[in-house]
Simulated scan of single mutants.
Amino acid sequence: MSGTIGEIGEIGEIGGTGPAVPASGTAAEAGAPAAPALPKHLAALPEDLSELRLPTWYFGFESVFACAYDLIKAYPSAWPALVALAAVNIALSLTLMRRRLKLAKALWQGKRTRFLALGLLALRIGSHAALAAVGVAVDGTAAHLAFAVAMGAVTLGLLAFTQRTALRALDAERARAHTTAA
């Protein structure tokens, strides 16, 4: 092999046969077809995927909403604060995090995230049912606050893990697409 693009194309690594061009020439100079473009969902992503990373405070908001039931049970007058937090969360999501909403949307469309959301719901219902089965009820301010903190911590950890996993998967998929395109 003399290192020409035409020969590489004849082998089928790039596809098609083009005129033989020395290895120092580019495919565009040789008139050879360009390498296949990345899939649409990968091409729209920034080069540095860490730009898409959702900030920790976003997960904090989501954790507060995950433990809202117990917070309202502990402090019934706290619902206006939760409504205000929901409004702030929506406003920040639509302004500061506009670019990052694609990742959040992709996370919610993923089977794993839906599985985690259903798992959190099952954890809440199951833990209350298990405690009721052994004769222990979650009553009182301290018990609801403890439950709220536990649910908030589990939610925060699972969301951070899901984001990290999703970004790694996107990075790996992009790397595979680059290697198959090259």
Rank of each mutant, 00 (worst) to 15 (best):
L116W: 06
L85D: 03
S24F: 05
L52I: 06
P39N: 04
T113Y: 01
S63V: 03
L131P: 02
A104G: 04
G3R: 07
G3V: 07
V138Y: 03
L123V: 13
L96M: 12
L120E: 08
P80K: 00
R168N: 15
A74E: 14
A91I: 01
C67L: 12
R124N: 15
V64D: 03
A23S: 07
K105P: 00
P76D: 13
E173D: 14
V88Y: 02
S50E: 11
L38N: 06
G18M: 00
G12S: 11
S77H: 13
A142F: 02
V154F: 09
A133M: 13
L85S: 07
A81L: 12
K111G: 14
M1K: 09
I125Q: 08
T4Q: 06
K111D: 09
T180V: 10
G12C: 11
T17P: 04
E29M: 07
R99A: 13
P80C: 06
R176L: 13
T26C: 05
G126C: 12
G157M: 08
A166P: 04
C67Q: 07
G60S: 07
F115M: 15
V138W: 02
S24H: 12
A28P: 05
A146Q: 07
L85V: 04
P36A: 11
D171C: 03
G140V: 09
L52S: 04
A142I: 15
D70Q: 10
G6N: 04
R53A: 15
G9I: 06
V138A: 03
I11L: 15
A169C: 09
A137P: 00
A169W: 14
S77M: 13
V149C: 07
A181R: 15
R124L: 11
